[in-house]
Simulated assay, not measured.
Amino acid sequence: MQLSKSKSVVWYLYLVKSPTGMLYTGISTEPARRLRQHNGELAGGAKALRGKGPFELAFSLAFADKSSASKAEALVKSWSKERKLQLCLHQPLPLDQLNQLCGESRIEASQPAG
């Protein structure tokens, strides 16, 4: 029996929010792990975020591949803070822009717990 080398991995666009309202945009295969890294619970968080937490997961969106997630990340990073906040609230216009950019590679929108 031969194992397939091409394992399907889901990539996520995510935004984390600091207590002061700062938003950070990134991509990961495991947003919950990245949040823990950004909060200093695990090694490997973004240097730009050190000492600015604790952070909460404000938004995540699943994509079928890294390329699509990267394109979405680049788009969202170009947006104003106001537009990013609209995305975190799942308002239609920013979500529609991500859909247009990435088409069928988008999997689903997910809201953070709590």
Score class of each variant (00 low, 15 high):
1 M>T: 13
1 M>S: 14
3 L>W: 08
7 K>V: 14
7 K>A: 15
8 S>E: 14
8 S>R: 13
10 V>I: 15
10 V>C: 12
10 V>H: 09
10 V>E: 13
14 Y>Q: 09
14 Y>A: 07
14 Y>V: 06
21 G>E: 02
21 G>C: 04
21 G>A: 04
21 G>R: 01
22 M>S: 14
24 Y>I: 02
24 Y>N: 02
24 Y>E: 02
25 T>A: 15
25 T>M: 10
27 I>S: 12
27 I>A: 08
31 P>S: 09
32 A>N: 11
34 R>Q: 14
35 L>E: 00
35 L>N: 01
37 Q>S: 08
38 H>W: 04
38 H>A: 03
41 E>P: 00
42 L>N: 04
42 L>W: 06
42 L>K: 09
43 A>H: 07
44 G>Q: 02
44 G>E: 03
45 G>Y: 00
48 A>P: 06
49 L>F: 05
49 L>W: 05
50 R>T: 05
51 G>W: 02
52 K>N: 07
54 P>W: 01
55 F>D: 06
55 F>M: 07
56 E>F: 08
58 A>H: 01
58 A>P: 00
58 A>Y: 01
58 A>I: 01
59 F>G: 06
60 S>D: 07
66 K>T: 02
67 S>K: 15
68 S>Q: 04
69 A>S: 14
69 A>C: 12
75 L>E: 13
75 L>S: 12
77 K>P: 05
79 W>L: 12
81 K>R: 13
82 E>R: 15
83 R>M: 10
85 L>S: 05
87 L>D: 00
89 L>C: 11
91 Q>L: 15
91 Q>F: 10
92 P>Q: 13
92 P>M: 08
93 L>T: 12
93 L>G: 08
93 L>N: 12
94 P>I: 02
95 L>Q: 07
95 L>D: 00
97 Q>G: 06
99 N>E: 12
100 Q>F: 08
102 C>Y: 03
103 G>H: 01
103 G>L: 03
104 E>S: 14
105 S>I: 04
106 R>Q: 13
107 I>W: 04
107 I>M: 13
107 I>F: 05
109 A>G: 07
109 A>L: 09
110 S>K: 15
110 S>L: 13
111 Q>G: 07
111 Q>A: 11
112 P>H: 02
113 A>H: 11
114 G>I: 07
114 G>N: 09
